[in-house]
Every structure is written in structure tokens, then in C-alpha cells.
Design a protein around this nucleic acid. Structure first.
Lengths: 114, 114
DNA sequence: GCTATCGCTACTGAAAGAGTAGCGAATCGA
DNA sequence: TCGATTCGCTACTCTTTCAGTAGCGATAGC
């Protein structure tokens, strides 16, 4: 498939519905996309700092994700990378995943009741 | 990498932090993972119905995702597939992405003000 | 000039995904 | 009982994506 970011309205990786939610899932479902938003929520980061924060992800993938996220209006670049207004808005939806993941991790280590 | 699902505490695709949130992002960041949760939120679906709902995703990928999501306690199987209690809980966090994606799609088709 | 860092590109080998065909089991109607 | 259909799922091939590494041109400090 092309290198185009999954704009809503256009067909999505493996789906032709073009539903905005599916385009968003396609965008966020690419490796490190959500991790990048997560790391940028703490403030602007340079390319290499972001790469470091993402566990040393390869620069080719990082650059690809950043281009996609910028094309979709979630990430801005004014000397270093940061969340756009929309990106910050999306992060407010993403934020509760943090504490939920903690709870979820505990539940996986102790067997469920019943 | 192995076929193991990204359990929190264990290293994650491309990251060694083992942070629950990163494990969750790794799990949800695989193709169709969030789409499957989204479709199952409407009620139980058979394998083929789910495959249809996901735009004809290939059965090999669908089965792989379902195994991972079951191993991580998000999807249950009692004749047909459905969200587990935890999966339903996670969906409540995922749900606001729907209307947000709609708004986001509009913003991409009309230029930003200013 | 030399060194160091920056953003980013190019390459290679490995992994994941798309797409298709088809199996064994259950279900249906005749 | 038989054939046809549907089911969950596996196996295979081909393409895309990703990880990992090396290195470029530009900038900054010494």
C-alpha cells in the first residue's frame, strides 16, 4: 500500500469503509503511534529525544510516524516536535488508558475471581 | 518476535520498559485489535460475522488477534466471541474516540481557522 | 579545523499482514 | 442417509512493515 496516512474518508489498510473511527484506528494502530503521542504529552521533544523516549525506536519508523501524525494534524513541529491542539485533545481521551493499564496488569498477574 | 501477547511486565515489541501502558499500546497497536473491540461492543459475533464486520480481514490475522485479546483477558468466547468484563471496561475508554474521530474528520476536510 | 550533536535518509534482514484455498465438524433440508 | 451449506480455523504465498545499523549534510562550540 502507499505511504499515505489514513485520512478519514479514504479507504484504510484492509478496509474500504472509510469510517473516521476506522481511519483513526488505522493511524493509531501503527507501531509507536500512540507511544509517540504519549511521550509528547509531557512536552516538546527533539527528534532524538523522542527516539530515546520511545525505547530507541528506529529513526526510519519514527520519522514515518511523525510525518503521518503531522499530516493528520495531531503533531506539530516548531523546532522540536509537540502535540497540536487536536493532538492534545486526543491525548485527553488517551490519558485514562494509563491507570486502566495498571489495573489491568495487576489483574493479569492474579487469577480472576470465580 | 514470538507469538506471545504483550503481557505487561514483559518486554514489548521494540521496547524493554515493560510498562503496562506500553504493553497495552503494543496490544492495541496491532492491526485490527481496536477494530475488533469496537465491533464486539455491539454484542457477540461469530468468527465469520466478525470477519465480515472487519471489512473481510484475513482469518489468519483475525484468529491471531482473537487469541491475543483472549490471552490478555479482553475478549471471551462462549459460543461466538464477545467482550469480557475487562474488555467492556476498556471499551468505555475507547468509545469517545468515535465522536472525536467524526469531528477530526471534518477538521481535516476544511482548513483550520487562522 | 576538529569534534559533537542535530534531523533525517538509505540500506538489509526479519516479522507481520493480506489474500486465497481448503480442512474437519456441525447443521440443514430432502 | 445423503448432499449442500455454514462454521471455526489452519496453511500457504506474496507483499508490506518494522527493527537495526550506518551514515549524510547542517549547525554549534572549541
Amino acid at each position: 500500500m502507499s505511504d499515505a496516512p489514513p485520512l478519514p474518508g479514504a479507504p484504510v489498510r484492509g478496509s474500504k469503509s472509510g469510517k473516521p473511527i476506522m481511519a483513526l484506528f488505522d493511524l493509531l494502530g501503527r507501531n509507536w503511534a500512540m507511544g509517540i503521542l504519549w511521550q509528547l504529552s509531557g512536552g516538546p521533544l527533539s527528534f532524538r529525544a523522542l527516539q530515546e523516549a520511545c525505547g530507541g525506536v528506529s529513526p526510519s519508523v519514527l520519522n514515518k510516524r511523525l510525518k503521518e501524525l503531522r499530516a493528520c494534524g495531531l503533531v506539530a513541529q516548531n523546532g522540536g516536535y509537540c502535540l497540536s491542539a487536536q493532538g492534545a485533545e486526543l491525548f485527553t481521551l488517551l490519558k485514562p488508558f494509563g491507570p486502566w493499564a495498571e489495573k489491568w496488569a495487576e489483574g493479569l498477574h492474579s487469577p480472576p475471581p470465580g
